[in-house]
């Protein structure tokens, strides 16, 4: 029982169908109190659908679960009141000013000290002087920060953030993550979906889903170790023909070009080394490197079946 109360999100075997497409399959996920969990996966993998089910915007077709102790199937009104959800697309009203948007949120959640909270939020954002500016005039990064501020206005204990940093510049993203960690330190739990690997590495733990299936779960190191993939880095010029040749070798499961270097990955170290010895002339140097999270995710994605295609 003690364990359950420590979980901000605890969902089991969530299912969702859109027509005959099985969009979310048997998703089980736990987010502990004060934990930041990264939700990763390719486009269309079911991340947004899963998040929407957790905050009561979509009705699950199967499975069960709780958010902050409220049943996601029957207590969506409670969840809506207690959970902060930030949509993938900016969904505040562009024809309202920054202050009007925050005021709207304050009113709709019936916050008693709304005026004070709005002032505080504007101050934290550094937008007090621009508070009457229309939301549509804000740049992408500022829109995201406004959305997060609006989401945080009522100090929820759980944040569901759907790609909150898409299209945001690196320094704004860094600020954003500092804020998230500050919140987590205060006990706020966060489930955040992202495509950025640097962000994934900032999460306490990760969940990777593709085509509706949860494929990997754990900390970044755990996921990397679990996949036991060996990676070699080849440096040199004109890597494309080499990459194509290497792909034909048994044991070379993945080649990815990063500018002046080529990552060659596979499960069997010996097979890869044999291939590299044959193909690499003196123009290329190669060495064994630590497999990165990105290598692992690309590997997982390639080896998961696109079962969405079957139903079409």
């Amino acid at each position: 029982m003690k364990l359950q109360t420590d979980l901000a999100i605890d969902v089991k075997n969530l299912q969702k169908y859109f027509g005959n497409k099985h969009v979310v399959k048997d998703l089980s996920l736990q987010v502990k109190k004060g934990e930041i969990v990264g939700f990763l996966g390719p486009n269309g993998s079911g991340k947004t659908t899963a998040i929407r089910m957790m905050c009561g915007l979509l009705t699950p077709d199967g499975g069960e679960g709780k958010c902050l102790g409220y049943d996601i199937a029957t207590q969506s009104d409670e969840i809506k009141r207690k959970v902060g959800y930030m949509t993938q697309k900016f969904s505040y009203w562009e024809d309202l000013s920054i202050r009007e948007n925050l005021d709207f949120v304050g009113r709709i959640y019936e916050l008693s000290n709304r005026k004070h909270l709005v002032e505080e939020a504007l101050e934290n954002l550094g937008l007090t002087s621009r508070s009457s500016q229309l939301a549509k005039t804000l740049s992408g990064g500022w829109k995201q920060r406004l959305a997060l501020a609006a989401c945080m206005l009522r100090k929820p204990r759980l944040l569901l953030l759907d790609e909150p940093t898409a299209g945001v510049d690196p320094s704004a993203r860094r600020d954003f993550w500092e804020e998230l960690h500050a919140l987590a330190a205060k006990g706020v739990s966060v489930l955040i979906s992202t495509h950025y690997m640097d962000e994934a590495e900032r999460c306490h733990s990760l969940a990777y889903i593709a085509y509706g299936n949860l494929l990997a779960k754990g900390t970044a190191e755990e996921i990397i170790t679990h996949q036991s993939i060996k990676t070699f880095n080849v440096s040199g010029n004109d890597l494309m023909p080499l990459s194509n040749r290497l792909k034909d070798y048994e044991g070379v499961e993945q080649t990815v070009i990063f500018g002046q270097s080529l990552h060659v990955s596979g499960k069997d170290t010996n097979l890869i080394q044999q291939a590299l010895q044959k193909e690499c002339t003196e123009k290329f140097q190669y060495e064994s490197i630590a497999t990165s999270l990105e290598d692992v995710f690309i590997y997982i994605m390639k080896h998961s079946t696109d079962n969405f295609g079957e139903s079409l």
Partner: peptide, 13 residues
């Protein structure tokens, strides 16, 4: 169409 419905639905309104 503007996508603000998702936000409105996520509120207790």
């Amino acid at each position: 169409e503007k996508g603000t419905m998702e936000n409105l639905l996520a509120t207790p309104a």
